[in-house]
Design a protein around this nucleic acid. Sequence first.
DNA 1: TCAAAAATGAGAATCGTTTTCATATTATAA
DNA 2: TTATAATATGAAAACGATTCTCATTTTTGA
Lengths: 136, 136
Amino acid sequence: MPYTTKQRQAILRCLEARAGETLTPAELAEELRRGGSSVGLATVYRQLEHLESAGLIHRIQTEEGALYQYCPHPAHGCFLLRCEDCGRVVHLDCDHLQTLYDHLASEHHFRVDPRRTVLTGRCQDCAREVARHGAN
Amino acid sequence: MPYTTKQRQAILRCLEARAGETLTPAELAEELRRGGSSVGLATVYRQLEHLESAGLIHRIQTEEGALYQYCPHPAHGCFLLRCEDCGRVVHLDCDHLQTLYDHLASEHHFRVDPRRTVLTGRCQDCAREVARHGAN
DNA sequence: TCAAAAATGAGAATCGTTTTCATATTATAA
DNA sequence: TTATAATATGAAAACGATTCTCATTTTTGA
């Protein structure tokens, strides 16, 4: 278990201040620099890894790289939905989803790890946008 | 729409021959080289992109890079499950899953794109393995 | 307070992927 | 067919996210 360093605290505080948003490691480092508490990029990566395995933040893997989002106390059913158009990630607490995962476990012998699973698709806003203008 | 080139055919044939497995672009290129029909890595990347948007293959994004799998005629409910331990990707055709996606669409206004969504977790074999020996 | 353990930061190294560009191939029209 | 325009190819360079290295600093625990 890592020590408490000011860098660690600064990173967690920064993510917390932007709860609901997703940040890349580079954005986070830039944000910290602007805030006066500059942290080396390598350290940002290292701490994000620690914070994730401590369960304090989410890691969302995209094709361009990883995104991180604050999520300290995930509810029983904390599911991630990511819109492939606008990139927003929302947390959904939905019994149906939990029920499905239970079904997959009991009937298909597969235990979904909700923290590593991102349901990718299109949010309402972007679906409307597509409907109005052409696709994409 | 891309032309029919021997490279394209060789790539598709190679993926087809290994249906059920996932291959990285580099593995695919190596495989082709071994088979005598060498294809440049850049071309492998370009064709994989084409084949995916044509719906002939699946692309599975992992933390180490992309994996590709043959899947020419996805059934109505073609869902991807990936074991985070052994890395295997299986296709699941399950009504419950389709029902859930319908629910997310109608009640939560989010349309999941099944081709881009990978349910990550642990398969039965690996779960047993973990139960027998220590975790991981 | 001291020594051991761990974290930091800057830059180099890695590695998957994309781009560049000159060349070769394919398709289409004459 | 043949000529021409459109597209694909391959090798190498470029890119970008991430990890590693290593000398230095900070933190912890005795």
